[in-house]
Each structure stands twice: as structure tokens, then as C-alpha cells.
């Protein structure tokens, strides 16, 4: 597994743990209401599990497994993919902080970072979606 995939997968596991913890608190609060603030964890729960866990794991696996180039950089522009990793995680944290910080620009900025991350990843990976070279 290349180093970049290692970091994608590690971050995705961290998001899985955070997302499950927040989801567990929300569900437990449905059982015995003990803290209404648990509902404020819902955006972080969804963001961590959908983008942080699943999308990020898929990106890490794709970087590892997609066909490589025979000439030049084997996995394409690695800087773009490092950029995607950083932007995605900063974006998720910003969106997840939405209920804690009353700054409306933070969600918008987080969403822009997440989208930029995915676009960078697509740019770097598009040409790797190809038949195997023989």
C-alpha cells in the first residue's frame, strides 16, 4: 500500500470511530434522553461517516489499486492527491463544527474545500481509469 493510501485509510478509520461515537450518543439519547445537545452532533456524525469514512477510504483504495502508468510518475500527480487528502479533512472538520460555531461562512468554506478535494482527486486519477497496459 503506498504511503498516501496509508494516510487516507488511517484518517478514514479515525472518522469511522468519531462518526460511530457521535451516532451512538445520539441513539442512546433516543433511548433515555440525557442531553439534548447530542442532536448538535448530527452534522458531524453524517459528515464523518459519509465523507470521512466511506469516500475517504474509497479514495485511498483507488490511489492504491487503479492501474499505474508505465512511464513517468506511476500513480500520476501525487501532489494533487496529497492536496485532496488535506482539503478533504480540513473541510470535514469545518462542516462538522457548524453547530458549535455561529459563523455561517464556516460551512460554506468547508463545503468548498471538500469539493476542491474531490476535484483534485478526479484530476489526478481520471487517466488511471484505463485498461491494463500489456
Amino acid at each position: 500500500m503506498p504511503r498516501l493510501s496509508v494516510w487516507f485509510v488511517r484518517f478514514s478509520f479515525v472518522h469511522l470511530l468519531i462518526g460511530l461515537t457521535f451516532g451512538g450518543l445520539i441513539l442512546a439519547n433516543k433511548g433515555f434522553p440525557f442531553a439534548s445537545w447530542t442532536w448538535s452532533l448530527l452534522p458531524a456524525h453524517m459528515e464523518s461517516l459519509l465523507l470521512g469514512w466511506m469516500a475517504q477510504l474509497a479514495m485511498g483504495m483507488a490511489f492504491w489499486i487503479l492501474p499505474r502508468f508505465r512511464y513517468g510518475a506511476a500513480r500520476g500527480n501525487v501532489n494533487f492527491v496529497w492536496g485532496a487528502l488535506i482539503l478533504l479533512n480540513v473541510g470535514i472538520v469545518m462542516v462538522a463544527m457548524q453547530p458549535l460555531i455561529s459563523m455561517s461562512w464556516i460551512v460554506l468554506t468547508g463545503r468548498i474545500l471538500e469539493t476542491s478535494s474531490i476535484l483534485l482527486f478526479i484530476l489526478a486519477s481520471w487517466r488511471r481509469v484505463k485498461p491494463m497496459e500489456t
Binding site: 500500500m1 503506498p2 504511503r3 496509508v6 485509510v9 488511517r10 478509520f13 469511522l16 470511530l17 460511530l20 461515537t21 451516532g23 451512538g24 450518543l25 441513539l27 442512546a28 433516543k30 433511548g31 433515555f32
Partner: peptide
């Protein structure tokens, strides 16, 4: 529901505990 919350959380923890050291270069 409390039991369900704990079990679902535990599933993730057990998976991560078994897999973390398999994430390697």
C-alpha cells in the same frame, strides 16, 4: 436502544483494533 448504540460502537472499535496495524506501506 442503549444496547444497540454500544454494540454498533463496539463493532467499529473491534474492526479498527484488528485492522489498524494492517494499514502499512
Amino acid at each position: 436502544l442503549i444496547a444497540s448504540a454500544i454494540l454498533q460502537w463496539l463493532a467499529g472499535v473491534a474492526f479498527i483494533a484488528n485492522t489498524w496495524r494492517r494499514i502499512k506501506e
